[in-house]
Design a protein around this nucleic acid. Structure first.
Length: 223
DNA sequence: TGCCAGGCCGGGT
DNA sequence: ACCCGGCATGGC
């Protein structure tokens, strides 16, 4: 009843401990962060979030009514600020039109339906959608990011050309669909990536998963 | 000092 | 169906 991805999870948890992750005091804050963090370090996102909080607009109504130019200036530290202001606007418009501006109402929709709807919003791709579903909504949607793909690829557990959906399917296939597990696992993979699996470092020095390097190739049946 | 960070879109082959 | 440039700031 074990799998290589389950085993990897246990190792990461033992090595790093629980991450208690995704900084954000409210689901709305998490949702905003999910857009702002696109291809950007969390450090920069924190600066932008701080600006929004100090301006008193870190709420649905506050952000939705905000002038686009004002929004751009406030989120500037997060980079791509014009694009992200537009994408945030698109997302808030969507929530206003379909769920009366209520996240609670939005997250009461079925997971698969809501995911498709989010992907229909311009600027919301698979990772951002899954981050919102999992970290803001508490729904079991596994988040795949650049670190996840790199870690799995370097261990030979997936083909380096595997796309988002294929990678996500591996996790769903091997793990129970529990939001708390998906949440913690993604956080652990990001931590692993930061410490041992950066893009420029071909070797994973001191990687806690090193002993797992296999015997049997990618996703060997015995796992 | 250059490279990178928890993507995604649009236009070109 | 791919491939690629554009988007932008702050940290190491």
């Amino acid at each position: 009843m074990t799998s290589i991805l389950h085993e990897a999870y246990e190792r990461l948890l033992a090595a790093f401990g629980p991450q208690r992750w995704w900084p954000g005091d409210t689901p709305f804050e998490v949702l905003v962060g999910a857009v702002l963090v696109q291809n950007t370090s969390w450090k920069n996102v924190e600066l932008a979030i701080t600006n929004l909080r100090e301006e008193g607009v870190l709420s649905f109504a506050g952000l939705h009514e905000l002038d686009q130019g004002e929004l751009e200036e406030l989120i500037r530290p997060a980079g791509y600020y014009k694009v992200k202001a537009r994408r945030l606007g698109n997302l808030l418009d969507f929530i206003a039109q379909n769920y009366e501006g209520s996240l609670e109402q939005m997250f009461s929709t079925s997971l698969s339906t809501l995911r498709e709807e989010l992907l229909g919003v311009n600027g919301i791709g698979p990772e951002t959608a899954d981050s919102i579903l999992l970290y803001a909504g508490g729904l079991p949607s596994f988040v795949v990011d650049a670190y996840t793909a790199r870690v799995l690829s370097r261990h030979g557990w997936i083909d380096s050309s595997a796309d988002y959906h294929a990678i996500q399917e591996e996790f769903v296939r091997q793990l129970p669909e529990e939001p708390a597990l998906f949440n913690e696992y993604h956080a652990l993979l990001v931590e692993l990536g930061k410490r041992h699996c950066k893009k420029a470092a071909p070797l994973c020095e001191g990687c806690p998963l090193e002993p797992l390097l296999p015997a049997g190739g990618p996703l060997a049946p015995e796992w």
